[in-house]
Amino acid sequence: MDNLNLLIAAPILNVQLLLDGLMIGAIFALAAFGMALVWGVMNIINVAQGEFVILGGYMTLLLVKYGLPPLLGIPFAAITLFVLGWLLYRLIIWRIVDADMFISLLATFGVSIMMQQLMNEIFGSDVRTAESGLGMSYLFNNMVTVSQIKVLAFILAFVIGLALWLFLKRSRLGQAIRATSQNPRAARILGIDTGRVYAATYAINAALCGAAGALVVMAWSIHPYAGLPYTVRSFMIVIMAGLGNLGGVIAAGLGLGAAEQFAGFLLGAEYQLAFVFLLLVAVLVWRQINLARKRQYLK
């Protein structure tokens, strides 16, 4: 616990960790928006979530390779992933919308491991990162450094969250999505093309992940097999926030980001992943105890 003493001796380090954590947490929240959407509307837990994020990162790297500015990667990744999401829905996902939850878990898991290795074959197995072109900010007499891309990520998460909320509330498609999530049969009877709604939902999810991935590759790094932790983080955030609670998703995302930064610092980076997965179990157990206390352990 040497690092704990370090934190007490140099309180400014806490600020650094907290800022880093909040900003990475905003990116987690972005992917979690998508998961909440797909879960709430289609009753599918998309295990391929993390792979969408990583692929968004590679799309950004593709732009960089052709000499384009990496910041363009955010819309580019979102658009390409939107198309991919739509295709995946039309190829596979539509068959499992009404199936048992475990079927959809397994099928999207299949998509996830396929994507991992395809990305490995196409983009190589190296750890990659993209230079955003933005600089650094220095706070507190240069004691705390903040890269501006992380600040941008932080702001974007809020903007996109708000845009998503407005889209669901105001737009025709948004209303159709909400109607379908509440009662797909009634929506079908009222003439809503639920197949199209599902395709759009899944594609929007992929686009959100793509944008998150573009930010991840600029702020941190990616490699083909780094997806699963993002899936797990999204899942945790959605459980903590509850479905259909966008504000809660942001709050939970920020909290998770901060918790992970501190845990990584205190336990050592090699245990950060173990921490994420054990935290997942802890969150689920916490949920379980809460339900049991309310005697709501039964469905």
Binding site: A107, F109, G110
Partner: peptide, 11 residues
């Protein structure tokens, strides 16, 4: 391509 094959098989 083993994981691709496995993923495809699962689906």
């Amino acid at each position: 391509w083993q994981r691709v094959a496995l993923g495809l098989l699962i689906i």
